[in-house]
Write a protein that binds this DNA or RNA. Structure first.
Lengths: 211, 211, 211, 211
DNA sequence: AATGAATGAGCTTTCATTCAT
DNA sequence: GATGAATGAAAGCTCATTCAT
């Protein structure tokens, strides 16, 4: 009666989070899911397909989160929105990071999954695009400086969020809500103002836009 | 003659870069180093120790690279210096990324290396610190806005660089010099100016500094 | 409706012909027969029993074919008749050869089937006997040399036919009608005359009959 | 010190003879050879390569036997020589038959081995050719009827020998020396004389040579 | 009668590690 | 120091068989 297919996916996800790919054996998965080892191969062609399914599930959730970003346009302040959005990105990647790292460590698995990702058109761009669209909208509303390229800014912010998540994972830091929120807040505030030297006098700061 | 030890370390490094941890077998290492499989166990207690040695070597090199960053203070323009520094960070981590990913994929290996990294104070902070010191110096010279916290800015820039490197690795992009340089240039220019809405009139933009 | 039993037997036969015993899984059989895997175990005690059923069916058919061989006695020339008969033997065994090989590959299966074959008197003798009876009849009609032992000749001819079939299977040759027919024709003609040195003079060739 | 490579080959040969391919597991091979299972993969790339080696060894022996056939030309009587030769063929194939059958039962293994056999040019023709050459030589000496085609006769005799061996294997008959020798003797004597009807009177037997 | 999810033993293969030389 | 044959534990995967529905 219990949906063992989902059961196995969840068990695999849990094990990837806690023990990494190196210790992810079919035997362990079966034990964690409380099913027979052979059942895995009833539901999935091989271990790689199972792992893909886990990633796909995770990514789908994250993707949906990202696609909802533009809905917030114009509400609240720009930095409030941004911080919320980046926090979302952070959390999504805090979850997904161990799996991504694991896949990257196995050349063979990586190549195979890259193919699947390519054919299903599911790269990491989705997140950046979501941000990009949101920022462009805010720019049209005059809530974002006309001087910035939304695409470049989106990429910077996204990278900071995802790297924060990876760093916390790497350092073994718990994903403490207030600490993370403050970190993101600091980044946003700092970048918002820019770091070009503030003129002591009236003269305007001169910045050439890159081609 | 007996630089077979270094021989093995180099071979392992090469294999980690190209094939990842998953296919890193002692047999493969021995073949790559052109020595007998058993010799590995004369020079290293076990495979983990060998891998640690490889990582340690790499990280030490990268660390030294990072510590020399502040030497450029005051010369040329701020953004020229920053772009050069960030390019260094990018390249260093482009090299080290596959190894870092591999370590992260194996919980057991990761825990062991984390301890070593912690006790020898070899975390990623060193790089940020290098940047931090450099930025603070520039700030004292008045070439960097007083409004920013050097530490926060350093972290942001570092994260962007390292994440770019990882992304290129993940996407299978070659580390093309001009493309990378342009990417970093765009980021620096964008962040330098900030993205707070530009006042159409004279009034100053008001930004509260985070506590 | 419920000729699913025969359905499964036929599917198994087809798979044995094309893929051999090694890849003959119950899952494959079920797919080929378009029934559920479990249904096999409603109709047969186990896989061995199913295989036995397939072999039994095949062998019975072949046996019946062979028993009708002597019907041709006296009509047409001896060699014409023989060639026709041997062609029949060839075709029958071309079909049955893969299955026979498969059985022979599994000692356990072989022993079990040997017993059944023995008790039902279904060995390969029947075919030889059919030939034997036919040859004896021809001998009585004076169309076959008195010097030969029909049983020995029957065995020789039968062996040549069956071995030709096995060889064609082994070599991956299609059972091309004209090629096969010519091969058998050549054999018959050659053996018919014998290979004892032809006396240049009148004296008779002296051949001692074996005890 | 003991040559474990040959050890494993011999063990595999023994198991193929007694239990067939179906029960030929690496575990069993290791136990029979009294070595660890992993050692098999130190000496052979996979199980198929091991099996090929077994066959190759067997075939090499048989091949050498066959190539020595023509040395007997002219010595003793034709039928004595032939019987000896065919006995040799019989014994060689009595040994090799179980393995050949086993290979034939596994489509995948068969295809792979056929490729190897083809590229090394080691088909079963060698045996027929050996016989063919021998018979042609005897024909030139006038010890074999001019009326026969050596190639056809060679094939017939070879097929009878090999099929006798397979039949004895199939029937579970021990390879009893005197019984086998008598069987071959009977065949040779029978075929030597031919089975064309013997003329009661003086008239010559008329046999058309096949085109 | 019919299904197909579920089982678990056992298969081939990999690989870190040991050890006699 | 150096070799590579040998080990054995465990990996991914297959498959005949069972069983609730």
């Amino acid at each position: 009666m219990s949906d063992n297919r989902q059961n196995i996916i969840n068990a695999t996800d849990r094990l990837l989070q806690t023990h990494g790919l190196a210790r992810l054996t079919t035997r362990e998965i079966a034990r964690e899911a409380k099913v027979a080892e052979g059942l895995i191969y009833h539901h999935f062609k091989d271990k790689a397909e199972l792992i893909y399914e886990v990633v796909e599930t995770r990514v789908r959730e994250t993707k949906n989160q990202m696609l909802n970003l533009p809905l917030q346009v114009g509400k609240r302040s720009l930095s409030e929105n941004l911080e919320e959005v980046l926090l979302s990105v952070y959390h999504a990647h805090y979850e997904i990071t161990p799996i991504v790292n694991c896949i990257f460590a196995d050349q063979k698995l990586r190549v195979r999954l890259q193919e699947i990702v390519k054919e299903r058109n599911m790269g990491p761009q989705y997140a950046i695009e979501g941000l990009d669209v949101y920022l462009a909208a805010e720019q049209r509303l005059g809530r974002l400086s006309d001087a910035v390229e939304p695409a470049v800014l989106a990429k910077c912010l996204w990278m900071i969020s995802i790297q924060s998540a990876m760093l916390d994972r790497w350092m073994g830091n718990e994903s403490d809500e207030t600490r993370v929120r403050r970190g993101i807040h600091d980044c946003v505030q700092t970048l918002m103002t820019g770091f070009a030297p503030r003129p002591k006098t009236e003269e305007k700061t001169e910045v050439k836009k890159s081609k």
